[in-house]
Structures are given as C-alpha cells and as structure tokens.
Design a protein around this nucleic acid. Structure first.
Lengths: 128, 128
DNA sequence: TGCTTGCTTGCGTTACTACGCATACAATAT
DNA sequence: ATATTGTATGCGTAGTAACGCAAGCAAGCA
C-alpha cells in the first residue's frame, strides 16, 4: 500500500500537479529551466519537486550537456495510466497559463532543444 | 487547485484508501461499525477519517436510528469519476482481506441493515 | 585553469496531520 | 429517568514535509 500512498502524496502539492500537467500537455521532455519559467517558481524548489516525482516513479530524467530534461513515465500499469488520465482531467486557469508560458519558452528552442537557462531571473526569490 | 490538492491529500492515507475501496467494492452504504470491523481499526480513528472523506466530498453520510451509514458519492464530474476508477485499480492483499471481512459482517445484517455494533471490541485499542 | 551557468542538496523553521486517550453527544433500551 | 451503545471530538505528542537560504557539484566557456 505504501507505494500508492507515496504517489498520492506526490500529487498533494500544487507545484507538482502543475509540473505533471505541464508534462502531460507538452507530450515531450521539458528542461528544468523551462519548467521554472513556465511555473514562475524558484529553481531549487522545482528541483526538489522533480526529485520527488522521479522517486515515486511518475517522471523520467535524461541529461543532455548541461541541461536536464524530464518527461512523464510511459507505463502500462493500469493504476498509473488511469491516474495520469485523472490528472489530465484537472482543469484550472493556472494549468492553462503554465502551458501558455511553456509554449512561449518552446519558441526559444533550437532544433527542439533548450538553449538558454532560466529567463525570469527576477522571480527566483519572489515570495508566493 | 486547492480542491484537487485536498482530495489527493485525502487519498494519501492507508486507512482512507481502504475505506474508499471498501465502499467501491461493496457498492452500497456501509455502517461505521461495519467499517471498523472490516478494517480492524479503532472506532474513533475511523470516525475521523470518515469525516475527512466526507469533507472533501468523496463520500455521503446517512443516518438510520443509531447507526450511521456511508457511501461513495455519485458524481458525474469527470475528475471524480476518473479518480474513483483509479482507486478501484488499487490491487492489494489488504484490500482483499478488508472486503472479505466486510462480506462476513454483511451476513449478520437483517433486512440489509446493520443490527449490531463493533464486534472486534478487543481490537479497539490495539497498537498497529 | 579559472569562471560562469545549470542544477542539486543540506539545514533550520514553520505548518500540518495521524494517532491514542479521554470525553462528549445522541439514540435506544431498561 | 437512567443506563447502554454507537458515534464524534478536543487535546497533546510525534512525525513529516514545504519553503527560503546558502552552499555544493558538474558541464561548458574564456
């Protein structure tokens, strides 16, 4: 049962729900700095949330040069697929706005790769 | 977003996942004492968990004499139906055993109604 | 070889939550 | 009316988790 609980705990956080929805909607690997810019949050917190999501097995990690990319896991497990379906049913303005910002960030990409770091640097230490 | 988070928090607890699966599998209203006996947990904790599940809108409450019954909400909301589907995909021995004990408790019912209180009284203050 | 940049991690603080215990409330039975 | 039984709740404690800050690691560039 512990595994299921860990997964639901991972979903009990707004930032992580936003990250997951970002990855669901984008349908491709997203760079850490692109997530930071899309969610307008501190980089170190995004990092921590990504680590947690990876630990419970919901996302995958890959590295390319100095950039790190994350993507949804591809699972055939009934629980997981059903859960991701559920998460994609979350409809909220915040999710929509995150996705819009990600689309804009994708425009900066070159050959489908991230080429710049965090852009909203002035947001790095803002209070929420 | 808060609403979604509250729901996932509600699912981040073994006892509550067990209660929900019990209600999903039984497909009818279940009395508090029947839940207590099925899960072999303290009555006051079951009560607290039921209250929380009700507060986030996942279960309904009804009263009949001195017995209180709980059942799954019937929702047409896409997120909720998808979520309940997901929860029903949780497969675990504990869930199976809970359900077996509930079936046995149902045998004691008269005219589909609960007629006795908590049976496993010796378990009321056991340490888990 | 430094230096910058992208990302991660350890620490202290604060806020929340589950549990056990004791008690309280509510409905029936004697 | 009082006792009993089913259920709920307030309190104290302990464990957990998110955040901001500061420092650390790792890859590429000057």
């Amino acid at each position: 049962m512990e595994q299921f609980i860990e997964i639901f705990k991972a979903l009990s956080d707004e930032t992580r729900l936003r990250i997951l929805n970002l990855l669901i909607l984008s349908e491709e690997s997203v760079c850490v700095c692109e997530i930071v810019d899309s969610l307008e949050q501190n980089q170190y917190n995004i990092s921590k949330h990504l680590k947690l999501l990876k630990n419970v097995g919901l996302i995958n990690e890959s590295k390319d040069g100095r950039y790190k990319y994350f993507s949804l896991i591809k699972s055939e497990d009934l629980f997981i697929t059903s859960l991701l379906q559920t998460i994609s049913n979350i409809s909220h303005q915040i999710i929509t706005e995150d996705h819009k910002r990600l689309e804009k960030r994708f425009d900066i990409r070159v050959k489908k790769k991230c080429v710049v770091g965090v852009q909203n640097k002035h947001l790095l230490s803002r209070k929420n």
